[in-house]
Design a protein around this nucleic acid. Structure first.
Lengths: 168, 168
DNA sequence: ACCGTCATGTAATCGGTTACATGATTCT
DNA sequence: AGAATCATGTAACCGATTACATGACGGT
Protein backbone atom coordinates (compact mmCIF):
# COMPACT_ATOMS: atom_id res chain seq x y z
CA UNK A 1 0.00 0.00 0.00
CA UNK A 2 2.01 2.92 -1.31
CA UNK A 3 -0.74 5.42 -0.70
CA UNK A 4 1.28 8.59 -1.17
CA UNK A 5 -1.49 11.17 -1.01
CA UNK A 6 -0.06 13.54 -3.57
CA UNK A 7 -2.58 16.13 -4.66
CA UNK A 8 -4.20 15.11 -7.91
CA UNK A 9 -4.69 17.32 -10.94
CA UNK A 10 -8.14 18.05 -12.28
CA UNK A 11 -7.36 15.83 -15.24
CA UNK A 12 -6.54 12.95 -12.91
CA UNK A 13 -9.91 13.34 -11.24
CA UNK A 14 -11.55 13.14 -14.64
CA UNK A 15 -9.87 9.80 -15.29
CA UNK A 16 -10.75 8.55 -11.83
CA UNK A 17 -14.32 9.70 -12.23
CA UNK A 18 -14.74 8.15 -15.65
CA UNK A 19 -13.46 4.80 -14.43
CA UNK A 20 -15.76 5.04 -11.43
CA UNK A 21 -18.70 5.61 -13.77
CA UNK A 22 -17.73 2.89 -16.21
CA UNK A 23 -16.92 0.19 -13.67
CA UNK A 24 -14.23 -2.15 -14.98
CA UNK A 25 -12.59 -0.62 -18.04
CA UNK A 26 -9.51 0.17 -20.02
CA UNK A 27 -7.97 3.53 -20.80
CA UNK A 28 -9.13 3.06 -24.35
CA UNK A 29 -12.75 2.80 -23.29
CA UNK A 30 -12.27 5.94 -21.24
CA UNK A 31 -10.98 7.68 -24.32
CA UNK A 32 -14.01 6.63 -26.34
CA UNK A 33 -16.37 7.75 -23.63
CA UNK A 34 -14.57 11.07 -23.22
CA UNK A 35 -15.03 11.88 -26.86
CA UNK A 36 -18.77 11.61 -26.37
CA UNK A 37 -18.97 13.79 -23.29
CA UNK A 38 -16.61 16.17 -21.54
CA UNK A 39 -13.83 15.61 -24.06
CA UNK A 40 -15.23 18.29 -26.31
CA UNK A 41 -14.72 20.92 -23.65
CA UNK A 42 -11.87 19.45 -21.64
CA UNK A 43 -9.72 17.46 -24.05
CA UNK A 44 -7.30 14.84 -22.75
CA UNK A 45 -4.91 13.21 -25.23
CA UNK A 46 -4.97 9.45 -24.96
CA UNK A 47 -1.32 9.24 -23.96
CA UNK A 48 -2.27 10.94 -20.73
CA UNK A 49 -4.95 8.37 -20.00
CA UNK A 50 -2.36 5.62 -19.85
CA UNK A 51 0.07 7.68 -17.82
CA UNK A 52 -2.52 8.85 -15.33
CA UNK A 53 -4.10 5.43 -14.90
CA UNK A 54 -0.67 4.10 -13.99
CA UNK A 55 -0.10 6.83 -11.44
CA UNK A 56 -3.51 6.36 -9.88
CA UNK A 57 -2.77 2.70 -9.51
CA UNK A 58 0.55 3.40 -7.78
CA UNK A 59 -1.31 5.60 -5.37
CA UNK A 60 -3.78 2.87 -4.63
CA UNK A 61 -6.78 4.66 -6.08
CA UNK A 62 -7.11 2.20 -8.94
CA UNK A 63 -6.55 -1.52 -9.18
CA UNK A 64 -5.18 -2.81 -12.47
CA UNK A 65 -5.13 -6.22 -14.06
CA UNK A 66 -3.00 -7.04 -17.07
CA UNK A 67 -4.42 -9.44 -19.64
CA UNK A 68 -2.05 -12.18 -20.70
CA UNK A 69 -3.65 -13.12 -23.99
CA UNK A 70 -5.10 -11.38 -27.04
CA UNK A 71 -4.71 -7.64 -26.80
CA UNK A 72 -2.76 -7.89 -23.55
CA UNK A 73 -4.57 -4.84 -22.36
CA UNK A 74 -4.77 -3.58 -18.82
CA UNK A 75 -8.13 -3.15 -17.17
CA UNK A 76 -8.73 -0.94 -14.17
CA UNK A 77 -11.35 -0.47 -11.52
CA UNK A 78 -11.49 2.02 -8.65
CA UNK A 79 -10.61 0.92 -5.14
CA UNK A 80 -12.33 2.03 -1.97
CA UNK A 81 -9.58 4.59 -1.48
CA UNK A 82 -10.29 5.84 -5.00
CA UNK A 83 -13.95 6.21 -4.30
CA UNK A 84 -13.16 8.09 -1.11
CA UNK A 85 -10.76 10.43 -2.90
CA UNK A 86 -13.38 11.18 -5.53
CA UNK A 87 -16.12 11.99 -3.11
CA UNK A 88 -13.77 14.08 -1.01
CA UNK A 89 -12.90 16.06 -4.14
CA UNK A 90 -16.53 16.46 -5.10
CA UNK A 91 -17.50 17.89 -1.75
CA UNK A 92 -14.36 19.93 -1.21
CA UNK A 93 -15.09 23.65 -1.46
CA UNK A 94 -13.19 25.11 -4.37
CA UNK A 95 -12.78 28.69 -5.40
CA UNK A 96 -10.78 28.27 -8.58
CA UNK A 97 -12.02 31.03 -10.85
CA UNK A 98 -12.73 29.17 -14.09
CA UNK A 99 -10.98 30.19 -17.27
CA UNK A 100 -11.83 31.05 -20.85
CA UNK A 101 -9.50 29.03 -22.99
CA UNK A 102 -10.52 30.30 -26.36
CA UNK A 103 -8.13 31.58 -28.97
CA UNK A 104 -10.96 33.53 -30.56
CA UNK A 105 -11.45 35.40 -27.31
CA UNK A 106 -7.74 36.22 -27.19
CA UNK A 107 -7.82 37.59 -30.70
CA UNK A 108 -10.74 39.72 -29.68
CA UNK A 109 -8.63 41.20 -26.92
CA UNK A 110 -6.09 42.33 -29.48
CA UNK A 111 -8.46 43.34 -32.23
CA UNK A 112 -7.26 46.93 -32.07
CA UNK A 113 -4.05 45.65 -33.68
CA UNK A 114 -5.87 43.99 -36.55
CA UNK A 115 -7.53 45.12 -39.71
CA UNK A 116 -11.29 45.59 -39.26
CA UNK A 117 -11.99 42.84 -41.79
CA UNK A 118 -10.24 40.30 -39.58
CA UNK A 119 -12.67 40.77 -36.73
CA UNK A 120 -15.70 40.36 -38.98
CA UNK A 121 -14.16 37.20 -40.34
CA UNK A 122 -13.45 35.95 -36.81
CA UNK A 123 -17.00 36.62 -35.69
CA UNK A 124 -18.43 34.78 -38.67
CA UNK A 125 -16.30 31.73 -37.93
CA UNK A 126 -17.33 31.68 -34.31
CA UNK A 127 -20.99 31.93 -35.18
CA UNK A 128 -20.68 28.78 -37.28
CA UNK A 129 -18.65 27.00 -34.65
CA UNK A 130 -21.08 27.62 -31.80
CA UNK A 131 -24.07 26.84 -33.98
CA UNK A 132 -22.55 23.47 -34.77
CA UNK A 133 -21.82 22.67 -31.16
CA UNK A 134 -25.31 23.62 -30.11
CA UNK A 135 -26.89 21.61 -32.89
CA UNK A 136 -24.94 18.40 -32.34
CA UNK A 137 -25.77 18.20 -28.66
CA UNK A 138 -29.58 18.22 -28.63
CA UNK A 139 -31.21 16.94 -26.56
CA UNK A 140 -29.37 17.58 -23.32
CA UNK A 141 -29.22 14.88 -20.70
CA UNK A 142 -27.15 15.97 -17.71
CA UNK A 143 -26.34 19.16 -15.85
CA UNK A 144 -22.85 19.48 -17.30
CA UNK A 145 -23.96 19.54 -20.91
CA UNK A 146 -26.78 21.84 -19.93
CA UNK A 147 -24.24 24.39 -18.68
CA UNK A 148 -22.07 23.87 -21.74
CA UNK A 149 -25.10 24.52 -23.89
CA UNK A 150 -25.94 27.74 -22.08
CA UNK A 151 -22.38 28.97 -22.50
CA UNK A 152 -22.41 28.14 -26.20
CA UNK A 153 -25.69 29.97 -26.57
CA UNK A 154 -24.38 33.07 -24.82
CA UNK A 155 -21.27 33.03 -26.98
CA UNK A 156 -23.37 32.58 -30.10
CA UNK A 157 -25.48 35.61 -29.20
CA UNK A 158 -22.38 37.69 -28.65
CA UNK A 159 -20.59 36.73 -31.86
CA UNK A 160 -23.76 37.09 -33.91
CA UNK A 161 -24.30 40.57 -32.65
CA UNK A 162 -20.66 41.44 -33.17
CA UNK A 163 -20.74 40.10 -36.71
CA UNK A 164 -23.71 42.30 -37.50
CA UNK A 165 -22.20 45.40 -35.93
CA UNK A 166 -18.87 45.06 -37.73
CA UNK A 167 -20.32 44.11 -41.09
CA UNK A 168 -21.64 47.62 -41.66
CA UNK B 1 18.46 37.18 -38.23
CA UNK B 2 17.64 33.80 -36.75
CA UNK B 3 14.03 33.95 -37.84
CA UNK B 4 13.14 30.33 -37.31
CA UNK B 5 9.42 30.51 -37.92
CA UNK B 6 8.42 27.98 -35.32
CA UNK B 7 4.70 28.04 -34.68
CA UNK B 8 3.92 30.10 -31.60
CA UNK B 9 1.62 29.08 -28.78
CA UNK B 10 -1.44 31.11 -27.94
CA UNK B 11 0.31 32.27 -24.80
CA UNK B 12 3.23 33.56 -26.85
CA UNK B 13 0.86 35.60 -28.96
CA UNK B 14 -0.56 37.12 -25.80
CA UNK B 15 2.90 38.27 -24.76
CA UNK B 16 3.62 39.56 -28.23
CA UNK B 17 0.30 41.35 -28.35
CA UNK B 18 0.70 42.93 -24.95
CA UNK B 19 4.13 44.28 -25.82
CA UNK B 20 2.74 45.57 -29.10
CA UNK B 21 0.03 47.42 -27.19
CA UNK B 22 2.35 48.75 -24.50
CA UNK B 23 5.14 49.92 -26.79
CA UNK B 24 8.51 49.68 -25.02
CA UNK B 25 8.15 47.63 -21.85
CA UNK B 26 9.45 44.98 -19.54
CA UNK B 27 7.99 41.57 -18.74
CA UNK B 28 7.09 42.93 -15.35
CA UNK B 29 4.92 45.65 -16.85
CA UNK B 30 3.26 43.01 -18.98
CA UNK B 31 2.52 41.06 -15.85
CA UNK B 32 0.92 44.07 -14.19
CA UNK B 33 -1.17 44.81 -17.24
CA UNK B 34 -2.24 41.19 -17.59
CA UNK B 35 -3.61 41.17 -14.07
CA UNK B 36 -5.93 43.99 -15.03
CA UNK B 37 -7.21 42.45 -18.22
CA UNK B 38 -7.09 39.00 -19.76
CA UNK B 39 -5.09 37.55 -16.89
CA UNK B 40 -8.25 36.79 -14.98
CA UNK B 41 -9.45 34.46 -17.69
CA UNK B 42 -6.18 33.34 -19.24
CA UNK B 43 -3.59 33.34 -16.45
CA UNK B 44 0.11 33.36 -17.29
CA UNK B 45 2.61 32.93 -14.45
CA UNK B 46 5.31 35.57 -14.53
CA UNK B 47 8.07 33.04 -15.03
CA UNK B 48 6.61 32.34 -18.44
CA UNK B 49 6.71 36.00 -19.38
CA UNK B 50 10.48 36.06 -19.05
CA UNK B 51 10.92 32.76 -20.85
CA UNK B 52 8.63 33.66 -23.71
CA UNK B 53 10.05 37.14 -24.16
CA UNK B 54 13.47 35.56 -24.56
CA UNK B 55 12.22 33.11 -27.14
CA UNK B 56 10.41 35.78 -29.09
CA UNK B 57 13.61 37.79 -29.19
CA UNK B 58 15.58 34.82 -30.51
CA UNK B 59 13.03 34.48 -33.25
CA UNK B 60 13.40 38.11 -34.17
CA UNK B 61 9.88 39.08 -33.20
CA UNK B 62 11.06 41.20 -30.30
CA UNK B 63 14.06 43.40 -29.81
CA UNK B 64 15.49 43.48 -26.31
CA UNK B 65 17.78 45.93 -24.51
CA UNK B 66 19.45 45.12 -21.22
CA UNK B 67 19.86 47.95 -18.73
CA UNK B 68 23.32 48.21 -17.22
CA UNK B 69 22.48 50.18 -14.09
CA UNK B 70 19.84 50.16 -11.37
CA UNK B 71 17.46 47.27 -11.74
CA UNK B 72 19.41 45.91 -14.72
CA UNK B 73 16.14 45.02 -16.32
CA UNK B 74 15.53 44.09 -19.91
CA UNK B 75 13.13 46.11 -22.01
CA UNK B 76 11.51 44.84 -25.15
CA UNK B 77 9.72 46.24 -28.16
CA UNK B 78 8.21 44.46 -31.14
CA UNK B 79 10.04 44.40 -34.45
CA UNK B 80 8.48 44.66 -37.85
CA UNK B 81 8.58 40.89 -38.11
CA UNK B 82 6.76 40.72 -34.80
CA UNK B 83 4.05 43.04 -35.97
CA UNK B 84 3.67 40.99 -39.12
CA UNK B 85 3.41 37.74 -37.17
CA UNK B 86 0.74 39.26 -34.96
CA UNK B 87 -1.40 40.51 -37.74
CA UNK B 88 -1.01 37.25 -39.63
CA UNK B 89 -2.24 35.44 -36.51
CA UNK B 90 -5.15 37.81 -36.07
CA UNK B 91 -6.39 37.32 -39.59
CA UNK B 92 -5.64 33.61 -39.83
CA UNK B 93 -8.83 31.58 -39.87
CA UNK B 94 -8.97 29.37 -36.81
CA UNK B 95 -11.38 26.62 -35.94
CA UNK B 96 -10.09 25.67 -32.52
CA UNK B 97 -13.21 24.76 -30.57
CA UNK B 98 -12.75 26.74 -27.35
CA UNK B 99 -12.69 24.95 -24.03
CA UNK B 100 -14.34 25.16 -20.66
CA UNK B 101 -11.56 25.00 -18.13
CA UNK B 102 -13.61 25.04 -14.99
CA UNK B 103 -13.21 22.58 -12.15
CA UNK B 104 -16.76 23.31 -11.05
CA UNK B 105 -18.01 22.20 -14.44
CA UNK B 106 -16.03 18.97 -14.13
CA UNK B 107 -17.52 18.25 -10.75
CA UNK B 108 -20.92 18.80 -12.25
CA UNK B 109 -20.16 16.12 -14.81
CA UNK B 110 -19.55 13.64 -11.99
CA UNK B 111 -22.26 14.77 -9.63
CA UNK B 112 -23.98 11.41 -9.84
CA UNK B 113 -21.08 10.08 -7.78
CA UNK B 114 -21.50 12.69 -5.06
CA UNK B 115 -23.88 13.25 -2.21
CA UNK B 116 -26.74 15.60 -3.16
CA UNK B 117 -25.58 18.15 -0.60
CA UNK B 118 -22.28 18.56 -2.42
CA UNK B 119 -23.92 19.81 -5.58
CA UNK B 120 -26.00 22.38 -3.72
CA UNK B 121 -22.85 23.57 -2.01
CA UNK B 122 -21.01 23.74 -5.33
CA UNK B 123 -23.78 25.75 -6.94
CA UNK B 124 -23.83 28.22 -4.06
CA UNK B 125 -20.09 28.79 -4.35
CA UNK B 126 -20.30 29.35 -8.07
CA UNK B 127 -23.12 31.85 -7.69
CA UNK B 128 -20.92 33.93 -5.40
CA UNK B 129 -17.92 33.58 -7.64
CA UNK B 130 -19.65 34.74 -10.79
CA UNK B 131 -21.44 37.53 -8.98
CA UNK B 132 -18.08 38.85 -7.83
CA UNK B 133 -16.55 38.68 -11.26
CA UNK B 134 -19.50 40.46 -12.80
CA UNK B 135 -19.48 43.15 -10.15
CA UNK B 136 -15.78 43.98 -10.29
CA UNK B 137 -15.78 44.52 -14.04
CA UNK B 138 -18.40 47.19 -14.55
CA UNK B 139 -18.38 49.14 -16.72
CA UNK B 140 -17.12 47.21 -19.71
CA UNK B 141 -14.76 48.86 -22.16
CA UNK B 142 -13.73 46.46 -24.90
CA UNK B 143 -15.20 43.54 -26.82
CA UNK B 144 -13.21 40.92 -24.95
CA UNK B 145 -14.48 41.85 -21.54
CA UNK B 146 -17.95 42.21 -22.99
CA UNK B 147 -17.85 38.55 -24.02
CA UNK B 148 -16.38 37.54 -20.68
CA UNK B 149 -19.21 39.36 -18.99
CA UNK B 150 -21.85 37.61 -21.05
CA UNK B 151 -20.33 34.23 -20.25
CA UNK B 152 -20.23 35.03 -16.56
CA UNK B 153 -23.83 36.12 -16.71
CA UNK B 154 -24.93 32.93 -18.45
CA UNK B 155 -23.04 30.85 -15.90
CA UNK B 156 -24.57 32.83 -13.06
CA UNK B 157 -28.05 32.18 -14.38
CA UNK B 158 -27.33 28.47 -14.65
CA UNK B 159 -25.84 28.05 -11.18
CA UNK B 160 -28.53 30.16 -9.58
CA UNK B 161 -31.24 28.05 -11.10
CA UNK B 162 -29.42 24.86 -10.16
CA UNK B 163 -28.98 26.05 -6.58
CA UNK B 164 -32.70 26.66 -6.31
CA UNK B 165 -33.68 23.36 -7.85
CA UNK B 166 -31.37 21.30 -5.64
CA UNK B 167 -32.13 23.16 -2.44
CA UNK B 168 -35.62 21.67 -2.27
C1' DA C 1 -4.01 -13.48 -47.64
C1' DC C 2 -4.12 -8.82 -47.37
C1' DC C 3 -5.35 -4.20 -46.08
C1' DG C 4 -7.29 -0.85 -43.25
C1' DT C 5 -8.72 0.53 -39.05
C1' DC C 6 -9.06 -0.43 -34.15
C1' DA C 7 -6.65 -0.77 -30.03
C1' DT C 8 -2.74 -0.18 -26.91
C1' DG C 9 0.78 1.55 -25.64
C1' DT C 10 6.02 4.13 -25.23
C1' DA C 11 9.36 7.94 -25.96
C1' DA C 12 10.88 12.51 -26.63
C1' DT C 13 10.01 17.06 -26.23
C1' DC C 14 8.19 21.24 -24.55
C1' DG C 15 5.32 24.44 -22.12
C1' DG C 16 3.70 25.60 -17.58
C1' DT C 17 3.98 25.60 -12.51
C1' DT C 18 6.23 26.08 -8.22
C1' DA C 19 9.88 27.31 -5.58
C1' DC C 20 13.83 29.81 -4.80
C1' DA C 21 16.94 33.83 -4.85
C1' DT C 22 18.26 38.52 -4.77
C1' DG C 23 18.75 43.53 -5.51
C1' DA C 24 15.93 48.09 -5.48
C1' DT C 25 12.61 51.12 -3.61
C1' DT C 26 9.61 52.83 -0.30
C1' DC C 27 7.83 53.44 4.18
C1' DT C 28 8.20 54.30 9.16
C1' DA D 1 18.49 52.15 9.69
C1' DG D 2 15.55 48.40 9.26
C1' DA D 3 11.38 46.21 7.48
C1' DA D 4 8.27 45.48 3.98
C1' DT D 5 7.18 45.23 -0.52
C1' DC D 6 8.29 45.78 -5.38
C1' DA D 7 10.75 44.13 -9.17
C1' DT D 8 13.45 40.78 -11.78
C1' DG D 9 14.82 36.96 -12.72
C1' DT D 10 16.60 31.44 -12.55
C1' DA D 11 16.06 26.49 -11.75
C1' DA D 12 13.83 22.15 -11.12
C1' DC D 13 10.12 19.58 -11.84
C1' DC D 14 5.99 17.79 -13.87
C1' DG D 15 2.09 17.50 -16.85
C1' DA D 16 0.69 17.70 -21.57
C1' DT D 17 1.44 17.33 -26.49
C1' DT D 18 3.28 15.07 -30.46
C1' DA D 19 5.22 11.46 -32.70
C1' DC D 20 6.23 6.88 -33.16
C1' DA D 21 5.47 1.88 -32.97
C1' DT D 22 3.07 -2.34 -33.16
C1' DG D 23 -0.18 -6.18 -32.60
C1' DA D 24 -5.18 -7.53 -33.10
C1' DC D 25 -9.36 -7.71 -35.55
C1' DG D 26 -12.74 -7.31 -39.34
C1' DG D 27 -13.89 -7.10 -43.98
C1' DT D 28 -13.14 -8.50 -48.87
Amino acid sequence: MTSGTRELTATAYVVLGMIAQLGVTTPYAVKRELRRSIGQYWPIPHAQLYAISGQLQEQGLLEGVQETSGRRRKTYRVTEAGRAALSEWLSRPGTEPGEIRSVAWLKLAFCDLAEPAAITQLAAEQVELHKDRIACRHPVKDHASQLALELDRAALRFWTSLAQRTAL
